[in-house]
Design a binder for these strands. Structure first.
Lengths: 128, 128
DNA sequence: GTAGTATTTAACTTGACAGCTAATTAACTA
DNA sequence: TAGTTAATTAGCTGTCAAGTTAAATACTAC
């Protein structure tokens, strides 16, 4: 058993942390491209781009094939999906937390409004 | 106007590239916590955690307030959303590309059946 | 074979980051 | 006042990533 999904997410997020690599990913989303194609928009040497591609490949964000002397890159959406899922999970947890709080507050207001109905101090103040 | 959105995404993805920091984010999605709270599950010194929190704060993923000597951390979903959006955009571009290709292939099949229909050719390709 | 194109590897510099320990600031408590 | 808890800063180290140039590899074409 490997060290789990963690390492893949590490590599994926790390790969996406560089603007050049994000631009490459965005470019590859539109279609496959060779290293030279990818290098054009960037003010960087070819070995530099090659290194970035290696990082992207290691993270699973792209894969590469071979056509003659070209090594075209193509995007692998699965890695993108994994990163997406991770963020969505935390995001949803956060939202649900507030949904629950809202429901709780509504409950208090509707259920106990005619009960004691303290004269004025009905606050949402929540604890710690 | 130099500091584009890029830098924020750099910082956000970089912050998410560390498993400890992702765990912290996941923990904070469930509710605010102090530094000591956050440190418990990790086999790491307090200054270590403090550094991670600084990285998260710089990226905008969390913010901090002050209660007496405590400095509780809160998740800031906006940074999470920005990262989410970026990935979704590339993901959607990728999907649309295949939707268009599929439509094109259907078109070809219906109009020109006599042509060879590529099995599952995923080429897009402007080379050769 | 030689030449040319596409891409990678090697070797190196620079700078940032993760982790530690020790010392320090900030706020509360007795 | 001193003492305690919460958290940070300072200083150090080892590691690793980003970029470079120069040389090597993998093909195509003559």
């Amino acid at each position: 058993m490997r060290v789990a999904v963690d390492d893949e997410l590490d590599a994926t997020f790390m790969a996406l942390a560089d603007p050049t690599r994000r631009a490459i990913v965005a470019r590859l989303a539109r279609g496959d491209a060779t290293v030279n194609d990818l290098a054009v928009p960037f003010n960087m040497t070819l070995p530099g781009i090659s290194k970035h591609l290696k990082v992207l490949e290691r993270s699973g964000l792209i894969s590469r094939s071979r056509h003659a002397q070209y090594r075209p890159c193509h995007l692998e959406p699965a890695a993108l999906d994994a990163a997406l899922s991770w963020i969505e999970t935390s995001r949803r947890t956060w939202t649900e937390r507030f949904d629950k709080l809202d429901a709780h507050l509504r409950d208090i207001q509707q259920g106990h409004i005619h009960q004691a109905a303290p004269a004025s101090g009905e606050e949402a103040a929540d604890h710690d």
